[in-house]
Structures are given as C-alpha cells and as structure tokens.
Design a binder for these strands. Sequence first.
DNA 1: GTCATACCCCGAAGAGTATTCGGACCCTGT
DNA 2: ACAGGGTCCGAATACTCTTCGGGGTATGAC
Lengths: 156, 156
Amino acid sequence: MTGNTVLDAIDAAILRELQNDARISNKDLAARVNVAASTCLERVRALQRRGVLAGFHADADPAALGRPLQAYIAVRVRPHNRDVVEPFIRFVLDLPETLALSHIAGADDFLVHVAVRDAAHLQRLLLDGFTSRREVAHLETQLIFSHIRKWDISPL
Amino acid sequence: MTGNTVLDAIDAAILRELQNDARISNKDLAARVNVAASTCLERVRALQRRGVLAGFHADADPAALGRPLQAYIAVRVRPHNRDVVEPFIRFVLDLPETLALSHIAGADDFLVHVAVRDAAHLQRLLLDGFTSRREVAHLETQLIFSHIRKWDISPL
DNA sequence: GTCATACCCCGAAGAGTATTCGGACCCTGT
DNA sequence: ACAGGGTCCGAATACTCTTCGGGGTATGAC
C-alpha cells in the first residue's frame, strides 16, 4: 500500500463483504478475502482505526415496525443562524419519526427523511411538530414511493 | 406477545442494541437485554424471519473513501412510464457515486443521494451521467453540508 | 381442580471461533 | 550483506455459538 487515501484490494474486499453482511464471522471473512484469520482481524481493526469503517448497524425495516409511509420534509428556518439552527437539529433528531436529516444549500435549509404510520400521522407530525415552531418559515413535503439504499460504497 | 405488529420489551431492546452495534456478540447482547444466550439467539432469528431485522451492514465513511462531497439530485423523467423509469432506476443504482435513490411524488420524480470527490466530479456526473440521457427532463442539484442518519429506529 | 396445549425460557456441553504471539517473509535503503 | 520496517502466517488457548432436552407458566376445556 502506498498513499493515504487508497485501499488495497484486500481492504476493498473486506469493506465490500462487511457492508454486505456485518455479522459475518472473522473466519469466513478471512476465507472470502483470502488471508489468514489473524491478518483479517488486524485489517478490520485498522480500517476502524482509520475511520473507513465507521460502525456496524442492523437495518430495521420501518414498515415492519408499523411505519410503512415515508416522506421528505424540506424546511426553511428563519433566521438561519446558530442559535436557531442547533436547537432545531436537536429537535428533529429527537423525533422518533426521523430517519435522517440533511443540512443543505439552496432555497431550503434542511431535508428531513421521516417514516410514519399513515397520512394522518404525517399530518400530525407536520402541524404539531414543525409548523408550530416559530423558526420554521416554510415546509414542503414529498411522499416517497420507494427508497433504495445502496449498502456497498466503494472507494473512489 | 399478542399482535403481529408490536414487539415486546426484549425484542425492542435487542433491536436497539443491534442497530447500535451489529457486531456485538450474542453473549454480550443477551447480557444487555437480560435473557440467556440461547433465548437471545432465538429471538434474533425470529426478528430476522419476521423481516423486522432486514440485514446487518458495515457503515463506510464516504469521506474516508475519497468522496467528501455529497449532494441531492432531483430528477424529472419524461415520459414517466415503466419502460423509461425502470432502466433509469437501474442506471442510477449502478453508478458508484449513488448512495440512495428515492422515487417520490411531486414535481420531481426521483431524488438521488450521491457522494463525489469534489465539485468537478459532481459536474461531470451531472453532465455525462444525467443530462446526457434522453429521458431526463429536468435536474436540480442541492449540495449537502451535513447528513446525519439515525441508526436507532424504534417501533411506532 | 386438573389436564392438555402452547409458549417461552433456561443451562449444559460439544463444536466452532476469536485473539494473541513468536517467527517467517519481503521490501528498501545503506 | 544487513538492518529496519512492514506485513503476513499458523499454533494454541480462551472464549463463544448453537443445539437440545427439559422446566416453568398461562390459558382454556372439562
């Protein structure tokens, strides 16, 4: 291995396998990427140390948890300064409906990805959760028909 | 346990722990949720069978993989019918830059979440990947300052 | 009451896995 | 040739997974 950014073929393979199945045993992982188990273990730990592997997470299905409807909520926050923005972020992340939150550049300031029980639940969330807050200047909601997340992010 | 939708306290705890760390050992998981290891194992398998636990994935940091810049690309596809939409979806999911793809209701048809090396890379992706396609009628790109994904989805 | 049924849970133990560590190997520069 | 640094490996011990038989408890029929 040469530079600081690039992964060699074995690291890339480890990354691929762990993104595909985070609960694979170290022994099986080692077999798949053709190194000894001890080597494999050390490589995984190195990837974690380097921050390439940021964590391992179970993927729970929102629909199976009674929240089959997803939406994006675009939010404009006024005034758009630290004292307003930081509490707003904390508020959104504390909502059980929230799946993800993006702070974006453009006409809107935030894009909130939510999963709810049904349209009535979404309506309640919008009215009671968002429009009732003073700093929320504008809302725009888009229903999500389907959402596909790619699990295998590859280097460059 | 009664219904089909609800999880009891132990299942909810298992879900929480596995979303927090998918590589926790079954023994440690059992200790955290206060059941025997064998019981815990069976519960995890039941959650997988039921589709509540859809998978386990390593979380790779796009920035550490040389792609520190993220954006949403809103796309309008014309005509919006099966023969056009399905190849488009396949195309987007095959792009290495794509992190996620949503099919949405509203003025735009798709929202594509991408991670790229830099602005020039994004520009190339837009021009060569998207606007060069016949079915792409409109594009709107928003840079992402920060993106926070919540890992712990709770029931209801 | 008491019996049957259906769950859920548990602990023991063999099979299997993780992890450490010393040493082999292979570059690279002197 | 040889020293230094890095990477990899396999053996061995400690630890974990997984199966399986059995115990506890709630429910409902008689």
